[in-house]
Amino acid sequence: MSPNTNKLYDTDYGLWLASQIDSLKSHQWDNLDIDNLIEELEGLNRSNENALESYLVVILTHLLKWEYQLKARSRSWQGSILNGRKRIARLCKQQPSLKLRVSDLVPEAYTDAIEIATLETRLPADVFPTKCSYSADQILDFEFLPADEELPY
């Protein structure tokens, strides 16, 4: 690898990326900036997981609001749930192994969702179950919405 390639990573990311792509396409292995390529690939994987978790937070927040604020239900909440599910489906189509991460990411996403739902509904946090009561399959199911039971809130 030329010293310029490594320096390029720090000074012009777009040009560095183009040079790495060219080197890969032309099988010029000696021109590859392996350490920075590894870092970028790891970052890309983390980025996809972060996106997945972010969509989970939105879905879970709106599922909680849907379940615990029956009188305030809106199509906007349904739209947010649907959008999150569609985004996750697309991510998992591009990277099927991400679907295996959903169950692992739910607990932390659920904690965030409780915080947001508490803020948005003005309900006390202890109204919501401390553990997520929705399965990963329910969270991703385009048809699932929590039961229509009348709650005292």
Rank of each mutant, 00 (worst) to 15 (best):
residue 143 E to H: 12
residue 131 K to E: 14
residue 116 I to K: 03
residue 97 S to H: 11
residue 103 S to W: 02
residue 111 T to H: 07
residue 117 A to M: 09
residue 92 C to M: 11
residue 130 T to N: 09
residue 118 T to C: 12
residue 140 L to Q: 04
residue 134 Y to E: 08
residue 89 A to K: 09
residue 115 E to L: 00
residue 132 C to F: 03
residue 138 Q to N: 12
residue 128 F to M: 12
residue 82 L to M: 14
residue 94 Q to V: 03
residue 113 A to H: 01
residue 129 P to I: 08
residue 102 V to K: 01
residue 149 E to G: 08
residue 104 D to Y: 07
residue 148 D to K: 05
residue 130 T to G: 05
residue 112 D to H: 08
residue 135 S to P: 07
residue 129 P to H: 10
residue 100 L to V: 08
residue 122 R to V: 01
residue 116 I to L: 07
residue 125 A to Q: 08
residue 114 I to Y: 05
residue 140 L to P: 05
residue 83 N to S: 15
residue 77 W to A: 11
residue 139 I to D: 10
residue 150 E to H: 11
residue 106 V to T: 03
residue 86 K to N: 11
residue 97 S to E: 15
residue 105 L to K: 01
residue 111 T to C: 06
residue 147 A to H: 08
residue 75 R to P: 00
residue 80 S to Y: 09
residue 95 Q to N: 15
residue 131 K to D: 14
residue 106 V to G: 01
residue 146 P to K: 07
residue 90 R to V: 10
residue 143 E to Y: 09
residue 126 D to T: 06
residue 111 T to R: 11
residue 78 Q to K: 15
residue 104 D to T: 04
residue 133 S to Q: 15
residue 86 K to M: 08
residue 92 C to A: 12
residue 113 A to I: 02
residue 133 S to K: 15
residue 140 L to A: 06
residue 103 S to G: 01
residue 80 S to V: 04
residue 109 A to S: 06
residue 136 A to H: 02
residue 131 K to H: 09
residue 81 I to D: 02
residue 120 E to Q: 10
residue 116 I to D: 09
residue 91 L to G: 02
residue 129 P to F: 13
residue 121 T to W: 04
residue 103 S to P: 04
residue 89 A to W: 00
residue 76 S to P: 07
residue 101 R to F: 05
residue 81 I to V: 13
residue 135 S to H: 13
residue 152 P to N: 13
residue 99 K to M: 14
residue 134 Y to P: 06
residue 126 D to L: 05
residue 132 C to I: 01
residue 102 V to F: 01
residue 127 V to H: 11
residue 79 G to W: 10
residue 112 D to N: 10
residue 91 L to P: 04
residue 110 Y to S: 09
residue 128 F to V: 03
residue 127 V to P: 02
residue 144 F to V: 04
residue 108 E to M: 09
residue 76 S to H: 14
residue 113 A to T: 01
residue 87 R to N: 12
residue 83 N to A: 14
residue 127 V to A: 10
residue 104 D to N: 11
residue 81 I to E: 04
residue 146 P to F: 07
residue 93 K to N: 13
residue 128 F to G: 08
residue 97 S to W: 12
residue 84 G to S: 12
residue 134 Y to S: 07
residue 138 Q to D: 13
residue 128 F to E: 12
residue 105 L to Q: 02
residue 100 L to F: 06
residue 82 L to G: 05
residue 145 L to W: 02
residue 121 T to R: 00
residue 97 S to A: 14
residue 142 F to N: 11
residue 143 E to N: 15
residue 88 I to A: 03
residue 89 A to C: 03
residue 91 L to N: 06
residue 85 R to A: 03
residue 117 A to R: 00
residue 87 R to C: 03
residue 150 E to S: 11
residue 144 F to P: 05
residue 96 P to L: 11
residue 82 L to Q: 13
residue 84 G to L: 03
residue 92 C to I: 05
residue 152 P to H: 07
residue 134 Y to W: 10
residue 101 R to Q: 10
residue 140 L to D: 06
residue 83 N to L: 14
residue 80 S to W: 05
residue 146 P to Y: 11
residue 77 W to H: 11
residue 122 R to Y: 04
residue 144 F to Q: 10
residue 147 A to F: 09
residue 114 I to F: 05
residue 76 S to A: 13
residue 88 I to T: 07
